[in-house]
Amino acid sequence: MSIQLTPPDASESTLILKAPEAPEIVKEADAPGMVPVPAERQAEINEQAREYIAEVATLNPLSPEYTSKIDGINRLAGQQLVASSNTSSRLLERSSTSLAGAKKSGNSAQVYVASTLGELRSTVEDLTPNQADFTVGRKILGMIPGGNKMAKYFQKYESSQKQLDKIIKSLLAGQDELLKDNASLAQEKATLWETMQGLSEYAVFAKALDTATAEKIESMKLRGQIEEANKLNSDVLFPIRQRHQDILTQLAVSVQGYLAIDMIRKNNTELIKGVERARTTTISALRTAVIVAQALANQKMVLDQIDAINTTTNNMILKTSEMLKEQTGRIHQQAASSGVSVETLQRAFDNVFQTMDAIDTFRSQANKSMEGTVLALESGLERARPYLERVRQQEGN
Results as ranks from 00 to 15, higher is better:
G78Q: 14
A229Q: 00
L199D: 01
K104A: 12
Q187F: 11
G329P: 00
T6K: 01
F353H: 14
N315A: 08
A203G: 08
I261G: 01
A376K: 15
Q245G: 12
T14L: 14
T344M: 08
S98G: 01
S170G: 03
T249W: 04
D181K: 02
L92E: 07
Q225S: 13
Y112D: 13
S85C: 01
K166W: 03
M220E: 08
A252S: 06
Q299F: 08
A229K: 00
Y52D: 02
G142N: 00
Q354C: 08
E125Q: 06
L192M: 03
A229L: 02
K189M: 05
A376N: 15
S364D: 12
S89R: 10
G380Q: 15
A54R: 05
Q394H: 09
E194T: 14
R279T: 14
L345K: 14
R223W: 09
D165W: 05
E21P: 11
E188L: 07
I264A: 07
Q305R: 12
N182W: 01
E389W: 06
F238L: 14
G137Q: 04
A295I: 12
A348D: 12
A336Q: 01
N351I: 12
H244I: 03
S200L: 02
I217T: 12
K231G: 12
S254N: 00
G137Y: 06
A132K: 02
F154H: 03
N107R: 09
E270D: 11
